[in-house]
Design a protein around this nucleic acid. Sequence first.
DNA 1: ACTGTAAATGTAATAATTACAAATAAAATT
DNA 2: AATTTTATTTGTAATTATTACATTTACAGT
Lengths: 142, 142
Amino acid sequence: MKKDNLIDVVMEKIKEKGGRVTIQRLAIINVLLKLDHPTAEEIYQFMRNEFPTLSFTTVYNTLHSLHEMGILREYRFGEASRFEMAETNHHHFLCQKCGGMKDIEDSNITVHLDEKLSRHYHILNTEVVLKGLCQDCMGEGI
Amino acid sequence: MKKDNLIDVVMEKIKEKGGRVTIQRLAIINVLLKLDHPTAEEIYQFMRNEFPTLSFTTVYNTLHSLHEMGILREYRFGEASRFEMAETNHHHFLCQKCGGMKDIEDSNITVHLDEKLSRHYHILNTEVVLKGLCQDCMGEGI
DNA sequence: ACTGTAAATGTAATAATTACAAATAAAATT
DNA sequence: AATTTTATTTGTAATTATTACATTTACAGT
């Protein structure tokens, strides 16, 4: 999806849920499209120069609201939560050494769930988490 | 694996890594065998009666050490970290409503990784995370 | 433009976790 | 068995990420 289309989709989704389209929300969406699984802190620091009046609390509030609206996903693998846009389905690799988080394309992993799982759970999302060493950290042990 | 054997294996593993087998460590291992993905807080509260001199800090220290030794796994899906013994391989279901975490037997899910992933990553562990509603929370929406 | 209200802001609180220094106790050595 | 070494435990005091709250601002409907 082209970026401008995506912003339009997000704006539409916010309105659907009865929310307001604010410059803070749009700005944070744009940062999420630029950075790779940023934390709230990273988003805030990235925006400070261009948006000096932005409050750190607003970053948290906004991430929380957008998450509630289903616009983004939250991961708490490390100390701080990391965020990404929810529009794509993919898996993740976590480096045990540097703590880095990488996207793994959906097409690289096939998952098959036994049918009986659906008798016990209403499954909305299936995601694979791979743990190990990334290329940068390989060859040095854990 | 029988419980006593498992304790022996854990003791051996601690010694291998140059660690000391303390009553605190053994007691916490035993709690991990009883409780389902407990948090540090839950472990501490569970132990207070029988072990009133136990320090909360020791729970954290111990969980950290045992994790470093590969004896247990840590998950940070919610606010607080949750822990489980590392001896078994299985997947997890996370309830989006109550925040509960359930084990899914390995045999209920098959995962196939594209070979080319191993060219970019040294993969040590593969785990599926299912998200949705558990039986208790079904029929009430999110 | 006017108005109702959701969202933004700043400060202060909270919760989980870690740092640190002193006391204790495994386990190696004598 | 006593002694010694040092990892671990303990309690208190930080730290870090996140949330609560009261006030101000500004989106969006009239």
